[in-house]
Amino acid sequence: MTHHEVEKYSAGARWFHWTITAAALVLAITGLFLYVPAFSSVAEGGATRIVHRIAAVIFILAPLLFFLMKPGRSFHFIKEIFSWGKDDLAWLKAAPDYYFGGDEKKMPPQPDMNTGQKLWAVVAFFSALGFIFTGIFMWFLKDTLSAGVFDWMVIIHDLCFIVGGAMLLVHLYLGAIHPRMTESLKSMVKGKVSAEYAQSHHGKWYKEVAAREAAAKGTPGGQGKQQAH
């Protein structure tokens, strides 16, 4: 077993991730108080609604900022999450067995974002758009919207909450709790994963990384930006 580590996430990406996570968690929890009457006592006084709004501002600003600072990477990311192929289908077929049983053999090698992560990213992307769009309406245009439109905004907001929230649970679970995803959390904290982990979970990507590393050793400065396939 080698102790060689490879960089999975840049510092910027990690900051972005955690900022967004924090905001999303706060939004989800403060939102939950309105959704579940049993928790409503927490929401009394309206403080959670202010918190919800602060978090919402962060939730909106963080991606914007990231986009402005790293437009290339952002485009790359968006392109990546919407690029679906045969491998993804194979992954989806193999995933239950893998996640329950741990049979790695059927899992096709994955790039830096595996199909599951892409799936999450797509859901997160659309629910975020839904949240932001409907949220802004509910926040600022309450007095101008007709009652019917507002009601639908609430419904979409909540629909996003149900779908996004369910997927968030999965993401949290896989990222932090699932017995096999040992280094996922670490990768997002420290930015690096062991070569072993990378090979097992993101085979395709690791190959590229390894190739790059090898090339870099030979030719310094040859960190060619590569498109994912």
Binding site: L34, R49, K142, A147
Partner: peptide, 11 residues
């Protein structure tokens, strides 16, 4: 108990 969400206003 009111949180001021205003859903009632619209409903």
């Amino acid at each position: 108990k009111c949180t001021g969400c205003g859903y009632c206003v619209e409903a």
